[in-house]
Design a protein around this nucleic acid. Structure first.
Length: 431
RNA sequence: UUGACCGUAGCUCAGUUGGUUAGAGCGCCGGGUUGUGGUCCCGGAGGUCGGGGGUUCAAAUCCCCUCGGUCAACCCA
């Protein structure tokens, strides 16, 4: 590697051509899925007043330790968004759209973490939120959207894990019982486990330290703390999923990273990914979040999916390949290059993907470039063609397929070239 | 934040008891007669061996620091 003193900051990266197209395609696929279900896009700021996130998750690491905070020149306290649900809730409070409000989003988020494969300091998520309904069918719709999108990418080795954390009061009672359980047995926990206990006992439930497992195994189950209403809600969600034929598994120990979840919580994990980064996304219900941000008591449910991990999962499953991005035609000009410019621009004006070479390269070199471009046709302009007012239109064969000599080539009047290409391309696309 | 492993041409890598001008494959560029893509043949460009410091007569090879990546804990998408 050459000595590059300037590089993308740790945990960030440049996404170049084929990958960037794939990223865009994924976002478009998500947009299609979301809009089919009646969700409209929200483009919110990359940074918010720090309060937006503070109010939502003071106790979570995401907010307390991993946020990029800064002051702008006007001395405002701001933070790069570490997640988008809070931003959307803020937008809801600010604009008070009519209910139900169904919104989807896509874009980068920022967390100061130690980078790893599938874990970046700037990462992309797609997600959707539904504000204004506490109907369990809303939970089902939201989960179904996430599921339908993932399967439409071609992902098969996906697991949907669901749980319910009960209502706010249930959650408090459960938390109390959990704390009591763990504190009585604190001696049996690892040192780190005891720290987690102080900070957030819920999190201890998904500890992976062997030392903690025994104590965790005996911990009380959430189910016993659900209110009648919460239990009914969860039951309705599960039967809704069953009715749709969406497979799921129940994990009573599933807790999510943000504290605002009530009732439904879910996660999508890929078996094609290994290790600690197998969760591609998750979400749940967050009744009360809007109120926390100074709005009315409006319930909500939503999810976010990590784009980078989705793509990793796609790689692992051989799904969702990058779009080809091949040119339609390649203009080979050995008369100086000016003709290539004119022709290419005419073609592009007609919606044809046209490439060309620069620097007056040899015909052979330009033909090689044409071959590599994946173009279906090469348009050749040499002194002869120029003199006769024509262009040689050569159909290129796939690599290794036919012999180069088998390709067809014919002369087309210069004035007809664009029309010819458009017509031929139209034929090609219908076969 | 803690611990471990790794960092050689654009890419994938070889190069270890430290020793001459650092290699391969792929890719890229040029050529194989006068204007034509694959394959094949020939030639070429491209590396301060991540960066800095140290040990040594001598370091890509040893030591320290640093940057970056990867794995695990933590956390989480």
């Amino acid at each position: 590697m050459s000595a590059v003193s300037l590089q993308a900051p740790r945990g960030t990266r440049d996404i170049l051509a084929p990958d960037s197209a794939r990223l865009r395609a994924l976002a478009e696929t998500f947009a299609d899925a979301a809009e089919l279900a009646g969700y409209g896009q929200v483009v919110s700021p990359m940074f918010e007043q720090i309060e937006v996130f503070r109010r939502v998750g003071e106790a979570t690491d995401i907010v307390s330790k991993e946020m990029y905070e800064f002051r702008d020149p006007g001395d405002r306290r701001l933070a790069l968004r570490p997640e988008l649900t809070a931003s959307l809730a803020r937008a809801f409070v600010q604009h008070r759209p009519t209910l139900p409000w169904k919104a989807w989003y896509e874009g980068p988020q920022f967390r100061y973490e130690k980078p790893q494969a599938g874990r970046f300091r700037q990462f992309n998520q797609v997600g959707a939120e539904l504000f204004g309904s506490d109907d369990p069918q809303a939970d089902v719709e939201v989960i179904a959207l996430a599921w339908r999108f993932c399967t439409s990418l071609g992902l098969r080795e996906l697991r949907l894990v669901v749980n319910s954390l009960g209502d706010r009061a249930d959650r408090e009672r459960y938390l109390g019982a959990l704390s009591a359980h763990f504190e009585q047995r604190a001696a049996g926990l690892s040192a780190q486990g005891r720290e987690t206990l102080d900070r957030n006992p819920l999190r201890l439930l998904d500890s992976k330290r062997p030392a903690d497992l025994a104590v965790v195994a005996g911990a009380p189950a959430v189910d016993d703390y659900w209110s009648e209403a919460a239990a009914g809600h969860f039951g309705a969600v599960l039967s809704g999923l069953e009715a749709l034929g969406i497979p799921f598994e129940r994990n009573p120990r599933l807790v999510r990273g943000l504290d605002y979840y009530r009732r439904t919580a879910f996660e999508l994990a890929s078996d094609a990914l290994d290790g600690a980064q197998d969760a591609v996304g998750g979400g749940g219900r967050y009744d009360g979040l809007v109120a926390d941000l100074g709005g009315p008591e409006v319930p909500g449910v939503g999810f976010a999916l990590g784009v980078d991990r989705l793509l990793l999962a796609c790689d692992a499953e051989g799904a969702f390949p990058p779009p080809p991005g091949a040119a339609d035609v390649f203009v080979v000009d050995v008369t100086g290059g000016g003709e290539a410019t004119l022709l290419a621009e005419e073609l592009r004006g007609a919606g044809v993907r046209a490439e060309r070479a620069f620097d007056g390269r040899s015909m052979k070199a330009q033909m090689k470039a044409a071959d590599r471009s994946g173009a279906r046709w090469a348009l050749l302009v040499g002194p002869d063609e120029l003199a006769d007012g024509v262009v040689s239109m050569r159909e290129m064969r796939g690599h290794g397929a036919g012999h180069a000599g088998a390709s067809v080539q014919r002369r087309v009047a210069r004035s007809d070239v664009v029309g010819e290409v458009v017509r031929a391309a139209g034929e090609g696309s219908t076969r």
